[in-house]
Design a protein around this nucleic acid. Structure first.
Lengths: 249, 249
DNA sequence: TGCACTAGCCTGTATATACAACCTGCCTTG
DNA sequence: CAAGGCAGGTTGTATATACAGGCTAGTGCA
């Protein structure tokens, strides 16, 4: 119940966001300037600055030096889907994750892998092939190539204890990633590994991860269409996911 | 070439992010406090505060009042996929978007739609069925239900000129959304609408959009598996997408 | 009429200062 | 020995002030 007064700058932000949300302020409309907020709300200019600066950082408004602050146009908001680490995803559902490492070996990049990793064909890579299970049922076939020079200790890892993705981000945090999602019919190998019935399609996620601007890993993640789905939530710009006040459980 | 000095707070942020990226500072390590930065970097405490506060907002560090500032652990970074408005996506590729409105009518919600929209069965909705084409080839079948009370003018819209999604976000900006992506085999109707061959799977995106905390629209978006893919980029926390310095084109 | 300049507002950054609230660890006291 | 309290460091917020730089409109001059 803590009726603790919210900080002034937060109140002002919410008031302005509220006006935008209710349509009272529409895209490209002018928002009060810092000095106007000083007069209107009785705060100092630094506080008004923080209000408008954060609204700008969070994408609600756009600021032009010398001109003013204006409501941003929410350009057909691209909504967002999160692609989680498979083990975490399963744990989050309260289920049990297990996996079989089908292959873990040094290898040479074929043309496709070399192109994806930005190296010459027949460059040194490690190849990992893992079936991930949720409560025993196969749910993902991970077919991954790792740049050998980036993670030379790959062959010594226990990929039942730590997923390749987690291992890689342990080597270098702040990785970037690129994803492609497709629906496709599995070939025979994939179908058997995932114990899929005939005529059942795959959800295929292709992922490249980058560290320090270089591609370091390329993975094809096959999922059985009837046992797997990606889900995601999109909330407007700077919605801070704090613990207090979870939305819409 | 503008050798314009970057602002001091920005330099300090980048220096700290660099240390994290290079692994010199690891998760849960202590970051210099505001007062320490005052001494080390020769800035005022307000500037040091801005540095650490923004690093916190962007997820690089966590701050605990009375204790200190610590490098955040990047919990198996959930990577991100953007689900764009189909017309924008096509335009972005420099292609031509066209569409056929197969149905636009008032309707009653069936059980599934009512549950998705949080209304009683047989509640008033509008039903829109549209085939979207890219350079003439069908690429998405949009099967959408809209809460009648939220958008009473739906039947008067020209959905060849403006997509339903854009129309809805025009009524109320700052919408939230929930997505599910699956691979599935299309039924006969879908297959014919999208001119798909037999045995070709669909990428199915199910989307609910919310305004002011209420579900206002429910859509099933069917895409032919061999002509469509979702792509996405993930960059670490607060990477501001400014125009200058596009990354890795 | 047309051009140059300037006044005035705006954002962006930076400093110095102040007070509240929080947490830890040490020290005092019972 | 244990419990309580206090000191000092840390974050969080807020103010007053200052100067640089961008943009616009209007003034005044040629």
């Amino acid at each position: 119940m803590t009726v603790q007064a919210k900080p002034r700058y937060q109140q002002l932000k919410e008031e302005i966001i509220g006006r935008i949300s209710r349509g009272e302020l529409r895209p490209s409309d002018r928002v009060p300037s810092e000095n106007e907020l000083v007069g209107l709300a009785g705060v100092s200019r630094m506080t008004a600055n923080r209000v408008l600066r954060e609204l700008n950082d969070e994408g609600y408004v756009e600021r032009v030096a010398g001109v003013g602050t204006f409501v941003a146009d929410f350009k057909a908001a691209s909504h967002v889907l999160e692609v989680r680490n498979i083990a975490d995803e399963i744990a989050r559902r309260g289920h049990r994750h297990s996996s079989d490492v089908l292959r873990l070996a040094a290898d040479r990049a074929d043309r496709e892998v070399a192109a994806a990793l930005g190296i010459r064909a027949r460059g040194r890579v490690f190849h990992v092939l893992i079936v991930h299970r949720e409560n025993g049922a196969p749910i993902q076939l991970e077919d991954r190539y790792i740049l050998a020079s980036f993670a030379p200790d790959t062959l010594a890892q226990d990929f039942q204890a730590i997923t390749p993705g987690a291992y890689l981000s342990g080597i270098s945090p702040l990785q970037e990633a690129e994803h492609t999602v497709r629906a496709s019919m599995p070939d025979e190998t994939v179908r058997e590994s995932l114990q899929m019935s005939a005529r059942e399609p795959c959800l295929l996620v292709i992922r490249r991860t980058f560290a320090h601007g270089r591609a370091v890993s390329f993975a094809r993640l096959y999922h059985p269409g009837n046992r797997f789905e990606l889900t995601g939530h999109y909330t407007p710009p700077g919605t801070r996911q704090t613990d207090k006040g979870g939305r819409m459980q």
